[in-house]
Amino acid sequence: MSARRSLAERLVLGAPWVWLAVFFLIPFLIVVKISLSQAALAQPPYTPAFDLADGWEAMVGKLSELSLAAYAGLADDWLYAQAYLSSLRMALISTAFTLAIAYPMAYAMARAPEHLRPVLLVLAIAPFWTSFLIRVYAWITILKDEGLLNHALLSLGIISEPLRIFATDGAVVIGIVYSYLPFMVLPLYNAIARQPPELREAAADLGASPAAAFWRITVPLSAPGILAGCLLVFIPAIGEFVIPDLLGGSDTLMIGRTLWVEFFDNRDWPAASAVAVVLLALLVLPMALYERSQMAETPP
């Protein structure tokens, strides 16, 4: 009996292990390897290309052909550094705005009458279930120079000339805040709703004003939720491609877009791989932080 059980257990553990190793871990090693190759007019477009059929010795021989040329290319061209910095800046600004909108929302939801909370929660998360692409697309119609927002503001007489929002960095920030808002609301709501109401009552009994109780009790106690929410927005925002591509201008620099262009337009696979490796290196710290916050949340 116990032998059969351990076989079943091994299968349950082994299936996801093997799948993720083959389709998640190994692909990264290949990215690293190709980032050490050089672009070439070949199929696939880089050299050296390892081929198991060549035999072991030929492959070892080719190891010396690996080089850091792609990384040197990144370091030489100021554009790459700018793209990384600009992604970082946009992700930080977007995260700050998302937090500013999401916190009051999550707070109001957590303090709403109990029977309303499930409905509010569904309402706040539902947009996440509708297509990301469509939600970003919806903003094009709104933000364009001749779009709905300018149309409304002009006809109300608030502005006399159309605002230029579409195809700017501002539009990208709006798009990121909008797309990732549910990711921020959910952990914040959980962190605030979990706090026992007695804490605020005790603070009030001890003479704290509602504002003082909010800033000194509610906010510090929701810190894990703030951290998780910010990371859930910040990390994907840095590598975002669709939003800057659709809402940003031609001068909007973001690293996800740089990678895309290197790969699809320039067909420079080693450069695209090197961009990916550096991006990942930048994300290691926030990702480790996120994983730790998740594991602390749900002990084994």
Binding site: P27, G239, F241, A276, M287, Y290, Q294, M295
Partner: peptide, 16 residues
């Protein structure tokens, strides 16, 4: 390996 893909930029997942 379970948590990393959740926040991995899509361009990296796709490329790899």
């Amino acid at each position: 390996m379970i948590y990393a893909p959740l926040v991995m930029p899509e361009v990296i997942t796709g490329l790899s």
